[in-house]
């Protein structure tokens, strides 16, 4: 269970998050939608402990991670998997080594088991045999899938996805959504996904939360969001242009 209460963050004079509150139930897929530049990545980076809030609490299974440092924070992070917006694969390593890296460094797996697990993780995302390639040598969609494999190879309890499909073609978008759903069914992790893919993303969501002007303005199951009477939500999911207010 992740419970965010009154999360506030400014960068200099710019207020990005204003008393944001959101609950994420264990074992569900929660989608965060909202305008580009609206602070979705900043919100996600608070959840993974890369940013410290100016005010508010981020409770993960009853522990306020915004107060943790060093080893204690690392303890929580060991249960995390994170897929960054650009994939954040290590350029200097092959795809195999990228996926193997957290296993080698975090859990000290013996080499033969390691190879098996990495190959299995790559196969899960439909990328058997690309292990020897470097991130610069594969397409954007493949990079995102390698990043997903790397995030899941340690069997995390909570997985964060920052725009896992932005910039991909419609076929790949659906492939990755079903991949997330499929892996979720298999591993039962809690997922927090930032996404712009409306309405496709509604198919895999348990809960959708709309971030607007630093707050979660509406949260509920996909059907409720689609039927929302909140004009901000309606405008966003219909993709209506700003009429200047």
């Amino acid at each position: 269970m992740i419970k965010v209460e009154g999360l506030t963050k400014s960068f200099g004079p710019q207020k990005v998050l204003r008393e944001l509150s959101l609950d994420v139930a264990t074992g569900t897929i929660t989608i965060v939608i909202g305008r580009s530049g609206g602070g979705k990545s900043v919100f996600l980076k608070h959840l993974i402990g890369l940013f410290r809030p100016d005010a508010g609490r981020i409770m993960v299974d009853g522990v306020d991670i915004s107060r943790l440092r060093g080893r204690d924070l690392d303890e929580i992070r060991r249960t995390y998997g994170v897929v960054f917006q650009g994939g954040a694969l290590f350029d200097s390593m092959s795809c195999f080594d990228n996926v193997a890296f957290p296993l080698r460094e975090k859990v000290r797996t013996p080499p033969d088991e390691l190879a098996k697990r990495v190959e299995a993780a790559l196969a899960q995302v439909g990328l058997e045999g690309v292990g020897a390639k470097y991130p610069a040598e594969i397409s954007g969609g493949m990079r995102k899938r390698v990043a997903i494999a790397r995030a899941l190879v340690t069997e995390p309890q909570i997985v964060f996805f920052d725009e896992p499909t932005t910039g991909l073609d419609p076929v790949l978008v659906n492939t990755i959504h079903h991949l997330i759903l499929d892996l979720h069914r298999r591993f039962r992790f809690t997922a927090v996904v930032v996404s712009h893919e409306i309405p496709e993303i509604f198919e895999i969501a348990d809960t959708v939360a709309m971030l607007h002007e630093g707050r979660i303005v509406e949260v509920g199951p996909p059907a409720a969001i689609q039927g929302s009477t909140n004009p901000v939500v309606q405008k966003f999911i219909k993709g209506e242009p700003d009429t200047g207010s």
């Binding site: 303890e75 992070r77 994170v82 960054f84 650009g86 954040a88 290590f90 350029d91 957290p102």
Partner: peptide, 17 residues
């Protein structure tokens, strides 16, 4: 610097490394 802006350094951090 490139590792920083492409979030590779953040990726290390969240792997608890």
């Amino acid at each position: 610097g490139i590792m920083r802006i492409t979030e590779q350094i953040d990726a290390l951090t969240v792997m608890a490394l």
